[in-house]
Amino acid sequence: MGQTETPARWLQTPRRRPAARGWRSSYARPGAAAMSPGIIAYLLFSLVPALGTFVISMTNYSGIPGLPVRFVGLGNFASMVSSAAGGFLPSLEITMTFAVSVTLVQNVAALGLAVLLRNRFPLVGLMRALIFLPAALGVTINGILWLLIFTPNQGPAASVLAVFHRSSAFFGSPSAALPLVIFVQIWANVGFTTLIYLASMDNIPEDYYDAARLDGAGRWHLFRGVTYPLISTAMTVSILLAAVGSMNVYDIIYVLTGGVNNTMTLGMYMFNTSFVGSGDLGLGAAVSVMMFVLTLVVALPLQWILRRREVSV
């Protein structure tokens, strides 16, 4: 871009009273016109489909060409939660286990790592980069990597267990699969959470610590008294991101287990009802709606609690 042509004097013009109404500016008309591609794209690919989810959830839409589409009211929701036919309740339980474990462990681990990696020191940069690496590798590579490591009769994980005279089917085991999937999810995302905490800790002035040290505060008290309260905003953000992200998870499940062995989270259940087996898009949309409700039910109070804590400190 022609940086040199940018007239630097614009930056130095004397301050003028701002125009009371922005839309009187000569940039107003072209500005408004130029908004249209973005707004059209947003309506088309975000808003309309989101509203569509609600509409489709109340139909028997199967997607089979030529088959009539009927309005079924809340029928999909009823059959979803009925104990006889519905897979919703088992998936809800799995999803909550997944989300609570991931949110807790990921944040505690990230906080610990952030404390370890917060000061500038040789090799700290490398460590920070390493934990962030899974985000760059992407879900498929991450999944394949751990499938390789957790090969039941051959991989490094099996060799470690063999030392203790144990073995496991790992992702093929109904009891081990969910904890392992939770582990991989945390492994893939802990770097990002750590970086949020690190960025937040970087903003704490060193004087605070010096003052606390003068008062004779020990290492734990420094953390409890200075670091912890001052990173509460970052904590709100990363807890919410982890909670919402893990409640809607399906990509990593898709790669690691496909939803078998007690790993059928709601996201996976939604995908399977919509696109696999009988392929019921109406029911799938209803599951999406329930996931949305669940996210609101969990995230809004959670946010309220976290924000209140921020204020009270």
């Binding site: 036919a85 897979g87 085991s173 109904p174 009891s175 939803g259 087996g277 009988s278």
Partner: peptide, 24 residues
């Protein structure tokens, strides 16, 4: 039955069967 009772839907039936085979 693809849309039958939960425990009889193919994927769920197979996973119960697997649990029988591995003694769960």
């Amino acid at each position: 039955p693809a849309n039958g009772p939960f425990v009889l839907q193919p994927a769920n039936f197979w996973s119960t069967l697997q649990n029988v085979l591995i003694g769960r």
